[in-house]
Design a binder for these strands. Structure first.
Length: 461
DNA sequence: CTAGGGGTATCT
DNA sequence: AGATACCCCTAG
């Protein structure tokens, strides 16, 4: 597995607001090996899945699966199971059973089946394998639940307990602990190492008067520097260093910040951060550029993954399929004025161009450079011609554009510029104001539908 | 840069 | 004429 794969996977797994990519799907798509880095990623993905189910409020037998997988992964890296892990499993199992105790009598409904499925089969397998998840508490729950089949009073008592809250508490605690153990993501660690290295360099510069020591950085750091932060070295000897005005922590930088999930840095990393704040808390322009480039690169890849996962393909083939995505049907201009044909290239071109881009960059696993020399977000107003007061030809919104707009609003809110920049290919023919106008249109439309529905409902009462 | 008002073309 | 979809202007 290559460094960039790990980075990409980490980006998706640790980003908080990224509901579109399923961690497990992503990991199958990347075809992880068994190295320690991959193990860490797998653990991250399981934690992210658990976190997602907590957010959705879905604590079910899927959560039990995840906790069991997590146990196996932790064993692989020779870690001991924490108490929170065991308790979370125990109380989640109880909660999963309790949800079938809604009838007044144990014999009604699916309680018996749930007991059989969860406690006899699932936990039976755990017992056979000698799992540490089988604790004294778990066994006690098993006896109580099985006893409650015959004992209506016990059944009632269990039925009325609030187990869910305890389960959630332990799951949350488990997540916190494991996130702390995982520490920072690769890009964050690299950024921190980079800072340290530069600090050392600076001290050396002060003493010797020239820059030396290139061995401090590891391979991936060097790769980052040579590939994406070429210009980062430029301002170093000038005013960039020691400039306290622009005081920013590594985590606050645009692009890098989005990789941060929760700041559970290990002790070592915290001291690194502290030293950083003491001596060199600011980022120069080159670093910011690099961070921004990295963010754009990752967002681009996110686009590819979104396309492939949306198609519902087998995860293992997701990468391959991402290159032959067929374009969504473009809406025929029902006005038939032909305005679109006069000045503008047909919509199809954009889509095809995008397709060929992805083939070139993603399959080759090299850092993609957009091949088009022309900036993608030249304002359509400028494109339309330099003459003032010439109205652009009317162009209807394609379903692809509308969909991209909806996604954009979900992601950025009403920040039309960001939405446009986030999807420059799709919105190449639209201005920020166009996005705003279209959104107003869409909102008006849904408001109208809602109002109509409300009125109909009232009348039917 | 965004929100809001208003203009224009087209359809019903 | 009214509704709709898109485009443009401008104040803040």
């Amino acid at each position: 597995m290559e460094v960039i794969d790990i980075w990409v996977a980490e980006f998706f797994l640790r980003r908080q607001h990224n509901p579109r990519v399923l961690p497990t799907k992503l990991l199958s798509a990347l075809q992880l090996g068994d190295s320690s880095d991959c193990l860490k990623l797998k653990i991250s993905s399981v934690l992210r899945d658990i976190s997602n189910s907590l957010i959705r409020g879905a604590i079910d037998e899927g959560t039990l699966d995840l906790l069991e997988i997590l146990e196996k992964l932790l064993l692989q890296q020779h870690s001991l199971l924490t108490e929170s892990h065991k308790s979370a499993y125990c109380w989640t199992a109880a909660e999963c059973t309790l949800r079938f105790m809604w009838p007044l009598l144990a014999s009604d409904g699916f309680f018996t089946e749930a007991l059989e499925r969860i406690w006899t089969k699932r936990i039976g397998i755990l017992k056979k394998s000698g799992s540490d998840l089988v604790t004294h508490d778990l066994l006690k729950w098993e006896t109580d639940l099985k006893k409650s089949l015959e004992d209506p009073e016990l059944y009632q008592r269990i039925r009325e307990t609030n187990i869910r809250y305890t389960a959630i508490s332990f799951l949350t605690q488990l997540l916190k602990e494991q996130c702390a153990l995982l520490g920072n993501s690769s890009p964050e660690s690299i950024v921190q190492r980079r800072f340290l290295k530069r600090k050392d360099d600076k001290i050396e510069d002060d003493i010797v008067g020239k820059r030396g020591n290139t061995n401090a950085a590891d391979e991936s750091t060097r790769c980052l520097e040579s590939d994406t932060i070429d210009n980062a070295n430029e301002p170093r000897g000038e005013s960039g260093d020691g400039n306290g005005n622009n005081r920013e922590n590594a985590n606050d930088v645009e692009g890098v910040g989005c990789l941060v999930n929760e700041k559970h840095a290990s002790e070592e990393e915290q001291t690194v951060a502290e030293q950083e704040q003491e001596h060199e808390p600011s980022l120069d322009k080159g670093d910011k550029t690099a961070a921004r480039e990295l963010k754009h690169y990752l967002l681009e890849i996110q686009g590819h993954i979104d396309l492939s996962t949306r198609q519902g393909e087998e995860p293992n083939n997701a990468i391959d399929h991402s290159v032959d995505v067929t374009p969504p049907p473009t809406r025929i201009n029902r006005t038939g004025t032909g305005g679109q044909d006069l000045n503008e290239p047909p919509q199809q071109d954009n889509v095809n161009e995008k397709g060929s881009d992805s083939q070139g960059t993603w399959s080759g696993r090299v850092r993609p450079r957009l091949p088009t020399p022309v900036p993608l977000n030249v304002s359509p107003l400028k494109k339309a011609g330099s003459k003032p007061h010439v109205r652009r030809p009317k162009k209807f919104w394609t379903p692809e554009e509308v969909e991209a707009l909806r996604e954009g609003v979900k992601e950025y809110g009403k920040s039309w510029k960001d939405i446009k920049n986030g999807n420059p290919e799709v919105f190449s023919e639209r201005t920020e104001v166009d996005l705003k106008d279209k959104w107003r249109n869409l909102v008006d439309c849904s408001a109208y539908i809602l109002l109509t529905l409300l009125l109909m409902k009232r009348r039917s009462k």
